[in-house]
Amino acid sequence: MESMVKNAAGRVDTRRAILSRWLDPDETTLAVLLLAPAAILLGVMIVYPVGRLIYTSFLDLSLTSGLPARFAGLANYQQMLDDPVFWQATWNTILITLITVPGALLVGLGLALLANLPFQMRWPVRLSLLIPWALPLAFAGLIFAWFFHSEYGVVNDVLGRIGLPGVIWFNSPRLAFAAICLAIIWKASSFMAMIILAGLQTIPRSLYEAADVDGAGRVRQFFEITLPLLKPTIVVALIFRTITSLQTFDIPYMMTGGGPGTSTATLAMYIHQNTVSFLDLGYGSALAVVMFGLSMCVTALYLRMIRGSERAS
């Protein structure tokens, strides 16, 4: 009887202890509690899918075969090495990144500088900067597909009017590729311009006034004040842009569908084709792992750049 009372009291005590621990947790518990939601979210939304992707890439898993998944080791990666379309798609993806990221940066920088000029009617300029960015990618792709259509397109129409022969843009891998890059630069430069414009507005005007007093010209001011102070903004914009351009899908998909042949296919398109059209999830996952690796490399490179510049300053 006595022990029962004691036990009950003990239970109450532990209950109280638990309660007080929840109400007034020590620092470690608090840290764990506060971090848990983020950790769980990251685990469910990122770590699990990526882990599952890597796991699937080692499987022979094709939904059309009707066979259950089978462990295949590196077979999918082996297949990739011998697959000319994979190499072509990867090379196209890298080339698109190398061309459109600097291209969009230059055009975007120019647009941002223009939009930042002190004139009265700023809103039409800023609105027109926003529109290409606000347009869905597939839309932009479709618009440019019509622009460059050999018979109905406005580009050939303009060429015709100034006396030049029309070109069948999508019949030639190079011209088709150039048209795609142009569309991507058009679409991406407005994003670049918006971010750079935000960066421009954080540069104190007093710096330019001081430079004026010191007799520095416009060009010198640009290279000595604007560009160095914009560098962090530009790096951030470049990171975003490079990663999205490694994932380029919509614009070439709508413009050429990867054609002529497979000459303008990108890695993302090839992944989509293997998973969605061919239902070859094993090979598709292996391709996606490669793309994941590429993105990680680029991100690491940029992070190192940022850290380097932080240390320098």
């Binding site: 094709s62 059309t64 075969s65 999508f170 891998p173 002529p260 042949g261 059209s277 061919f278 070859d280």
Partner: peptide
């Protein structure tokens, strides 16, 4: 064949490439 989509893709992209003069 259950893998018809792949057969189709192999043929149609090649027809397209030949007609465009790429191959």
């Amino acid at each position: 064949t259950p893998r018809y989509n792949e057969v189709s893709e192999a043929i149609r992209t090649t027809v397209n490439a030949v007609l465009a003069g790429v191959t």
